[in-house]
Structure formats: structure tokens, C-alpha cells
Design a protein around this nucleic acid. Structure first.
Length: 158
DNA sequence: GCCAACGTTGGC
DNA sequence: GCCAACGTTGGC
């Protein structure tokens, strides 16, 4: 099956690329997503080996900061079962999970982050979901062409 | 800190 | 099933 490409947004105050670098095996479980559209992608579409752009929102400037690889496909997000967790979701149970997560591993941190401003300047990226007005998905698909273009802009080889 | 845009909730 | 109210996201 063909490899797919994704972009994961994160507020660096919650979880940054530095946190990811400091994680065991530079790997983390992408928990806490509470949006049904994003959930469907995590559960059904995002496959082992897929590549992920790691994007920092809410920093100045917002930017793509790294490349990751999916190392584990969709499984239940444990934080939904934990009453003390801020992501607790009372109607979910281990038998009937509502929310899903995948594991991603950092492949490389971009030497040159690709900022939102840079992305907006590229005519070839004008249809990117990330740039669509009002888009609030934290997990979204990226076209292979867009992915390659962004790597090129960062000076990385793909 | 502001605010536009969006998703979710809950009353009816 | 509608829709107003609310909370959240995220760029600026």
C-alpha cells in the first residue's frame, strides 16, 4: 500500500519537538486528540510507515519543525479512561473506546523550520489544508507533492 | 490579548 | 432535528 503523508499540529507549550527529542526512542504516543474527523484519521487512515510533518502552532512564527514516522497504528487513547486526566471522556470504556492515538518517532528535526509565512508564499501550496481559512484540524492529510515541496524548502532531501 | 471560525452541547 | 450558546483553536 502506498505511503501517506500527514501533518500533526501541536502547541509547543503542551508538547514540543524538544519534548519529542527527549522522549525514549524519540517516540511518543499522540494522545489527547478530541475531534472526530481527526479521530477517524488516527483510527482508520494513518498507517505504519506513513510520514508526518511535526508542526508547532501558537509560536512565533508557527512552523513545520520536524519529520516523523508512524511506528504504531491506531489504538485506544488511554487518557480517555483516566478520570484525573484532562482528556477524560466519561462515556468511553476500554470495551468501547471513542478516541484513538498512534505512535510517531522523530526522524529528523528540520535544520531550517518552514514557517507558515513561507508556506503561504508558495503558489504550489495554496491548496494545502493547513492554509485553509478556519481549518482547526490538528491531524490532517498532506499531499505527497506538498510534503516534498516542504522538505525542499527546508533544505532537506526526501 | 483579541477575535474569527469552528465544533460541541443541550434545550426545545 | 434545529439552533443558540458556549468553549476552544490558533493566527495575528
Amino acid at each position: 500500500m502506498a505511503k501517506n503523508f500527514w501533518l500533526f499540529k501541536t502547541d509547543p507549550e503542551d508538547f514540543s519537538i524538544e519534548d519529542l527529542k527527549a522522549s525514549p526512542g524519540k517516540t511518543t504516543n499522540w494522545s489527547g486528540v478530541r475531534n472526530y474527523q481527526a479521530r477517524n484519521l488516527l483510527r482508520d487512515e494513518i498507517k505504519k510507515g506513513d510520514e508526518v510533518l511535526f508542526y508547532h502552532s501558537s509560536e512565533d512564527p508557527p512552523a513545520v519543525r520536524g519529520i516523523c514516522k508512524v511506528v504504531k497504528e491506531g489504538y485506544a487513547d488511554d487518557t480517555q479512561f483516566a478520570p484525573e486526566d484532562k482528556h477524560f471522556f466519561p462515556s468511553a470504556s476500554p470495551e468501547n473506546p471513542v478516541w484513538y492515538q498512534v505512535d510517531i518517532k522523530l526522524v529528523k528535526e528540520l535544520k531550517t523550520p518552514v514557517t507558515l509565512t513561507d508556506l503561504k508564499k508558495k503558489a504550489s501550496l495554496k491548496d494545502m489544508l493547513l492554509l485553509k481559512k478556519g481549518n482547526r484540524l490538528s491531524v490532517m492529510p498532506v499531499k505527497e507533492k506538498e510534503y516534498k515541496e516542504i522538505l525542499k524548502m527546508s533544505g532537506e532531501e526526501s
